[in-house]
Design a binder for these strands. Structure first.
Length: 564
RNA sequence: UGGGGCGUCGUCAAGCGGUAAGACACAGGAUUUUGGUUCCUGCAUGCGGAGGUUCGAAUCCUCCCGCCCCAGCCA
């Protein structure tokens, strides 16, 4: 029994690579690449591809290049390049010195194009957009050949040279591959190789005013980089014949294999770059790094860990089925990681004042509280206890349903690591009737939350000392959309935005040990969830925490059942 | 509609002719100073449908049905 690969993810792509190893197709070499276009931020869908490609390279002792697929100057920028680099590094991957840019291949691509013209495989076309669309035909009708298709080679050469020289206006000329206007695959109907764009490129500046199209660029870039397996998403399946055609047309000395897999879809969010841009530009979210965003940078700010994201990508698998992954799986992955790695701490989000009537007025005790109950190696901290405390408003009910075990009048509960206390009185606002203060008595014999007589208590609740805890702002994030698939039916996703995706709490009180919490540091606020220090807005003077994800909460289920 | 893909549990996903892995979700239960964690248990006589081949079919064949992608000088 071969156990060596039992825990390794396997999938149809790795099967292909395994076969190639057996037949020695690439002399045991595996070279892949991750080719983002720097016109937006990376999101969790890209992470799937990043983990796939870099994961394969690592698993097979191969390489994974990072290549900026920058062939369209509009929308591309250095800011995006930098964000992509930052995000992939943060995810934990390394491409060594193999950072490439399609824009570095412009000159060679131009030479390939000239070669194709000379061999009668490409021609300069004077059709404008509308005419070209009209000539393209439809799904059912073949296209018609461009009247410029049979121009003499010399004329094509001259025209293409002048296109490069900037003699023509945008939209007046294109360079097209001469393939087959009757092909049932529309991609093959004399596709455009170059178009004129009098736009500065973020890297090449004004050196070029013609830019190569994706189909022409990508396969040749892969070939130049000696990529063995060019992994992309399903929508490029139609383009594969063209990928192979260009390689053949220029008689490439190296021909990579394109393999397509299904892109990631996640419930309760959207993945389309275009729509994410819209969320940012319309101010629905506060930027690409808004913790509500499914972007890597947004998730990072929210408190997700690289390990959790990598684990998620391993668990979802790689296949060709269109799929919609349940957000609950992602949440499970973060909880799983954070549960093991995160120190526990007490924080009260919606404070309710509690006075321990029989506790000495000026006494302050310190309790030793472990940072992780299952992992003593994480150490502990001292937490001050005094006569006036805060507990969570949700942890008290005046008229509790039968299954509510927390604080209620006359009921004894445990203050975590503190004492057993019994609520003896409720103070309400004279006008509103709102509960403003609780009076309790404590049992001095139950120090640290232990009853020497062995008596049990149904609940343990968290608390902070009013005088010693420190104020903080806490941002409660929830799902961006209220429905699993915001694009279902009419694509009018805006109407599905979750109005409660963010709740800001400004009067929270947190464990004093958090006073010097570093930006991006993560904690479990006991009984509440996982939180991290906001990397943008938090400071020592004004602590801000973001909720990454709640703890699994079986109480809400019980409470919901009770309502019925 | 022409072409290209895909249909296995609520959601993902193994399976590659020998009689349906696993994960998440869900439902029970045990342990618990987090209604957390952990640990047990349950969860497809069924693989889009109908025929056929075979001793034997999710796997092979035929037909049918459904979903996704393609008519940007985007990638």
């Amino acid at each position: 029994m071969d156990q060596t690969n039992s825990s390794r993810p396997s999938d149809f792509i790795r099967d292909i690579i395994d076969d190639d190893f057996k037949t020695n197709k690439h002399q045991g070499r595996v070279a892949v690449r991750f080719p983002p276009e720097p016109n937006g931020y990376l999101h969790i869908g890209h992470a799937k591809s990043v983990c796939l490609n870099f994961g394969i390279a690592a698993q097979y002792g191969g390489t994974c290049n990072l290549r900026m697929d920058d062939t369209d100057p509009s929308g591309e920028s250095m800011e995006y390049v930098e964000s992509i680099i930052r995000d992939i590094q943060w995810l934990g991957f390394d491409w060594g010195d193999r950072l490439f840019f399609a824009s570095d291949y412009y000159e060679r691509l131009y030479e390939y194009a000239v070669q194709m013209i000379k061999e009668g495989k490409a021609f300069v076309c004077d059709l404008d957009v509308d005419e070209m669309r009209e000539h393209r035909g439809s799904f059912t009708e073949p296209g018609r050949e461009s009247p410029y298709r049979n121009r003499p080679v010399e004329e094509n050469l001259d025209l293409f040279e002048r296109m490069r020289a900037g003699e023509f206006e945008e939209g007046t000329h294109t360079l097209r591959a001469k393939i087959d206007m009757a092909s049932p695959n529309i991609t093959m109907r004399d596709p455009i190789m170059y178009r004129i764009k009098k736009e500065a490129h973020y890297r090449t500046g004004n050196k070029w005013c013609i830019y190569p199209m994706y189909d022409f660029t990508h396969c040749l870039s892969d070939s130049l980089e000696r990529i063995t397996h060019s992994i992309c998403t399903l929508e490029f399946e139609n383009n594969r014949p063209l990928y192979d055609w260009f390689l053949e047309a220029v008689n490439a000395d190296y021909r990579p294999q394109q393999i397509e897999f299904a892109r990631l879809n996640l419930t309760y969010t959207i993945m389309s770059k275009r729509l994410l841009i819209e969320l940012v530009s319309k101010g629905i979210v506060k930027g690409w790094n808004d913790p509500l965003m499914p972007t890597i940078t947004g998730m990072r700010r929210r408190g997700y860990t690289p390990a959790a994201i990598r684990d998620f990508c391993d668990r979802i698998g790689v296949a060709k089925n269109d799929s919609m992954i349940d957000m609950a799986l992602l949440e499970n992955c973060v909880r799983d990681d954070l549960n093991q790695t995160t120190p526990r701490v007490m924080a009260v989000l919606r404070p309710l004042k509690v006075i321990i009537d029989n506790y000495p007025d000026d006494q302050v005790e310190e309790f030793d509280c472990p940072f992780h109950p299952q992992n003593p190696d994480m150490g502990s901290r001292k937490v001050p206890f005094s006569k006036v405390l805060y507990i969570e408003r949700d942890d008290f009910m005046e008229d509790p349903p039968k299954k509510f075990f927390r604080m209620a009048i006359g009921r004894e509960v445990r203050l975590r690591y503190g004492y057993f206390v019994t609520c003896v009185d409720v103070v309400k606002d004279r006008d509103t009737g709102e509960v403003v203060e609780l009076h309790c008595t404590y049992d001095p014999e139950t120090r640290s939350g232990f009853a020497p007589d062995g008596r049990k208590v149904k609940a343990t609740i968290h608390w902070v000392s009013a005088a010693h805890s420190i104020p903080a702002e806490v941002r409660l994030y929830d799902r961006l959309f209220q429905v699993a698939d915001p694009l279902e039916d009419d694509f009018d996703y805006m109407k599905h935005l979750n109005p409660n995706s963010l709740e800001v709490l400004t009067s929270c009180r947190v464990d004093p040990s958090l006073a010097n919490a570093e930006p991006e540091s993560r904690y479990q606020f006991e009984r509440l969830g996982y939180f991290c220090v906001d990397s943008v807005d938090s400071s020592a003077a004004n602590l801000v925490f973001n909720r990454t994800v709640t703890l699994r909460d079986s109480w809400v289920k019980i409470a919901r059942k009770g309502e019925k």
